[in-house]
Design a protein around this nucleic acid. Structure first.
Lengths: 143, 143
DNA sequence: GTAGGTGCAAATCGTTTGCAGTACA
DNA sequence: TGTACTGCAAACGATTTGCACCTAC
């Protein structure tokens, strides 16, 4: 499911958040790219159309969108905290270490492993993080 | 394979790094715990035995040890950059979200999935990150 | 003796917070 | 109209850098 600006706006409203021009701009930016973006990168993009926006607003908007699971936090490599549009439901990421392209994939089930680990260690498992890092086709060519 | 201080020292030397008392102290601290430790936590521990050490030295030492793959970076949740002794070879982590205990586990092979993804997406996959977050037995009791 | 390592202080980066003014519902 | 949102500035924590001194080899 590809998230549209419209869809995001609706979800915001549903949860009692106001729909401001700044939030629209952030949503549009995130929805218009496949990349994972850091808050700073989002700020730069949004800033072009909307020069008066503050970086703070980006952070606050990202917090909200993440809470509503409309976007999705990534932990690739050193640079923590970058975001990408999040298809809802459970999925994992394949991230290009060069250009930052992110591909979501689903259909890989870790439940069995989770149960085995839980049995073996006594842990009550709350969640997991599965990300693959590699080089996308384009970046391979340009090497 | 459990890393000893001796082993670490040898590896350092092998790669042309000098063996200073400060580095010894950092190594000893990391080798003596199962937890994942943030640079700041390592600093506090080391500082007890070695009050003149600077936080900067911790950072520089960690960089080196990580480069030599003697320790292992974790990405649990929000707090990035904590380290744990790294058994060599491939393994994944199970991390307690409350107390920070880390359990390494091996024997789960992602090669097949990696190949499938590579075939489907054209990515040249370099590595991956698999971490489970949960509550360890102790922390479950103390709830 | 020398290259590399150390510790300090200051710079830097990313993120959060307090607050007064503003705008959506 | 009232509450939530915004933007600024300043605070904050973690990490890095420049530099003069020191020390393991």
């Amino acid at each position: 499911m590809r998230l549209t600006e419209r869809k995001i706006a609706a979800t915001l409203r549903q949860h009692g958040y106001k729909l401001t021009p700044q939030r629209r701009a952030v949503m549009r930016t995130i929805a218009s790219t496949q990349d994972h973006l850091t808050p700073a990168a989002i700020y730069q993009k949004v800033h072009k159309d909307h020069p008066s926006i503050g970086l703070v607003t980006i952070y606050r908007t990202l917090d909200i969108l993440a809470k509503l699971e409309l976007i999705c936090e990534l932990h690739a490599g050193g640079s923590c905290r970058s975001y990408t549009v999040g298809a809802r439901g459970h999925h994992h990421h394949l991230i290009c270490s060069n250009c930052g392209e992110v591909i979501d994939f689903t259909g890989y089930d870790l439940t069995q492993l989770e149960q085995r680990l839980s049995r073996q260690t006594g842990f009550e498992i709350e969640g997991h993080l599965l990300e693959f890092i590699g080089l996308c086709q384009n970046c391979q060519k340009n090497d």
